[in-house]
Design a protein around this nucleic acid. Structure first.
Lengths: 395, 395
DNA sequence: GACTTTAGTTCGAGTGTCGTACTAAATAGG
DNA sequence: CCTATTTAGTACGACACTCGAACTAAAGTC
């Protein structure tokens, strides 16, 4: 297959068509199966225009007609759906102790996904072969995104700093390019990816301004404004772990005291409840949650962690004013054990009387959030009108 | 004159023209006077297209031809410039102890501006009459923006909360609409407006990711990402005054301790140097700066304030990763007396080794920043292609 | 004074959207 | 069962816009 290429020019009428095609695709993703008439309503385009656009998408295999649904008056519409039998986005995650991969189609369906314990980028090759290999015939990979727990530069390719992973300075995008079938490859921060996933498929669905916090040994944040990730000038936005809102006496791995993650990071939480660390953050948290059922001391420890968590969220909320705050990582496994006290602290702490309290929710996506969000990011250019699927010959 | 109306539809070819017209206008603003050939280069449009677009802009009086500049080989270009003899943006500011107004033309030239002491919105009417009245003949006001030190809702019209101003709950946009000649009216937070002004005309020019901090009795922030204001879900983003990074012992007006503004707000600064408050924050700061020249105690006090300022900026920088941080309000008057210690603290405190230190700069716009930024915001829709100036008949 | 170089316009081709008129396919009601 | 009604989708012509090529215009260069 010829490689998909990003079309930068938007000045001519072809760019207009790309924009309108993307609007149709967005409408299909948002509203699900729709007839041409419904698409015309939702997008504001004329019926005739929608007809032409849909014809192109059908020819490219992006859109298929489903069975006619009748029952209403008048001629029944022929519902179109995005079950992309041809185009998928690939999401990978390289983390400290596991690698993960997700194949996502244009309709938002996860076609395949796997997570396996591993250390180091070498495991990615095999995982990609296994997960993608058997699902690829007849499909085309629109793009690949690799999520890593690291500071990723604004070029979306290179890692500037990774405290727990030996990838600093490497052009990871180039490495990944050799492993995947085709399409654009980019690298992205894992918290950013997870935030994106929660906004599209998880607890923050429907919110245009959201904050995602991942709790592991450190604390990372993904910030969404108008549905788009806030990256900052160098791409490093969201580094909230060492914000000084924790217990001023708590020593942090960074050498200072009072860092947030020294009070609410995994190790601090385990110390607060007096329990040992297990092989993964998730399993540690699950053990704590189980013990909390009949141990008041554990519940009290989590209460304190939840309070400190709320302090930091209050601070971030007054700066960023999110509608929803999603808690991922080990926080999700503890659920209301930490969310409830965090909510109470948040209520007390909001800076001004008029401030709106953001909705605190536990992540619903679990450990696969980052890879899913990475896959969703790979599909982003399609829905933004930056990538033209129509130019391809039908398979 | 008929009212200018915002054109929402972008689907048709007219929308395409609006987009390309806006691209030409942006290029003119960015690069200054340019020939049609240069415009074609910068925008990527065909020469023929630029010719048509420019003809429309000339007919509408938005663009004028300057004298031919020769000297190079070949036929000399006829430079076009944006010195908008017809269209201006109006910026107003209603603050605790003064009101301000600015008339800004499309080329970025301030045609008129005035600031006068006043308390309450009643003074706005007279100011607008005086400032706009004498500069309006033949011109058209594209839009008006009112800057207020308050939490402005996402509707850009109503005030949710204003600690120092009796405007809470009011639809200020409706009030202002009665005072100004025409065009859309919106209300905006003063720190956001000032941030916008610094990015277009001041210390943050050229930076796409910037943070503006205004120091008066309280501390407010304006956040720019990709040149656009970060507003948050309800419009309340940037409320940084009560972030708990100050001296934990310092009591704040909000009832808690440790708030940032309790350590770096105007009153805290004056207490640190042992000097009295004068009639305005600016004058107070100027007196302190003068005294600092030969009073080591004052310098030591400012050193401490600068340190606490740096702590908060470090925190905000790790969250938002700005390229530039601009300090306005009373901070600007103190200059390096607080900026130098803030820079030192910032260098120490940056969360990770790879983090980029943002450039700390004093505001260059002074007290008129908010009104200027408000005026610039009024012109925003023109350069974004949301407002069509071409449909108007030439005056 | 012919040549070269660059600026700007004219013109026709190509692409796209839109509204109207038309055909298609279902239900509702006698 | 047949007709009227209602809604979906298509065909077609009008209109708007961009683009490249050819052309004209206006300077400097040799």
């Amino acid at each position: 297959m010829p490689p998909l290429t990003v079309q930068p020019r938007n000045a001519g009428t072809e760019g207009l068509r790309r924009q309108n095609t993307a609007a149709v695709l967005r409408s299909l993703r948002e509203h699900g199966a729709s007839s041409r008439a419904e698409l015309a309503q939702h997008t504001g385009l004329a019926k005739a225009t929608v007809g032409v656009i849909v014809a192109g998408l059908e020819a490219a295999g992006v859109v298929v007609e489903e069975d006619v649904r009748s029952g209403t008056r008048g001629r029944p519409g022929r519902p179109l759906t995005l079950r992309g039998e041809r185009h998928v986005g690939l999401g990978l995650e390289l983390n400290v102790d596991y690698v993960s991969a997700v194949v996502l189609d244009l309709g938002g369906t996860v076609l395949a996904g796997d997570t396996r314990p591993a250390t180091g980028p070498d495991a990615l090759g095999g995982l990609v072969r296994d997960v993608v290999g058997e699902h690829l015939p007849g499909r085309e990979v629109v793009g690949t995104t690799l999520a890593v727990p690291a500071l990723v530069r604004g070029d979306d390719r290179t890692v500037a700093w990774a405290p727990n992973l030996d990838v600093a300075g490497r052009d990871l995008a180039a490495t990944v390019s050799g492993l995947v079938p085709g399409g654009a490859v980019q690298v992205s921060n894992d918290a950013n990816c997870a935030a994106y996933a929660e906004a599209h498929h998880g607890a923050a669905r429907g919110a245009r301004h959201a904050l995602y916090l991942t709790g592991t040994v450190g604390i990372g944040a993904g910030i969404l404004q108008h549905g788009e990730l806030v990256r900052g000038g160098a791409g490093f936005a969201g580094e909230v772990g060492h914000v000084p809102v924790g217990d001023p006496a708590a020593a942090c791995g960074c050498g200072r005291r009072g860092c947030w993650e020294a009070s609410v990071g995994l190790h601090a939480m385990l110390a607060a409840v007096g329990m040992p660390e297990l092989d993964t953050p998730l399993r540690s948290a699950e053990a704590v949650a189980a013990r909390a059922l009949d141990d008041a001391g554990v519940r009290a420890g989590l209460e304190r962690v939840g309070h400190d968590l709320g302090l930091g969220i209050a601070m971030l909320s007054s700066i960023l004013d999110p509608e929803v705050v999603v808690l991922g990582g080990y926080f999700a496994a503890l659920g209301d054990l930490v969310l409830a006290p965090a909510r109470r602290t948040l209520d007390e702490r909001l800076a001004s009387p008029a401030q709106v309290r953001p909705d605190l929710r536990a992540s619903t996506l679990g450990i696969g959030a980052a890879a899913l969000g990475a896959a969703e990011q790979s599909l982003g250019p399609v829905f933004a009108g930056e990538l033209d699927l129509t130019g391809q010959l039908p398979g």
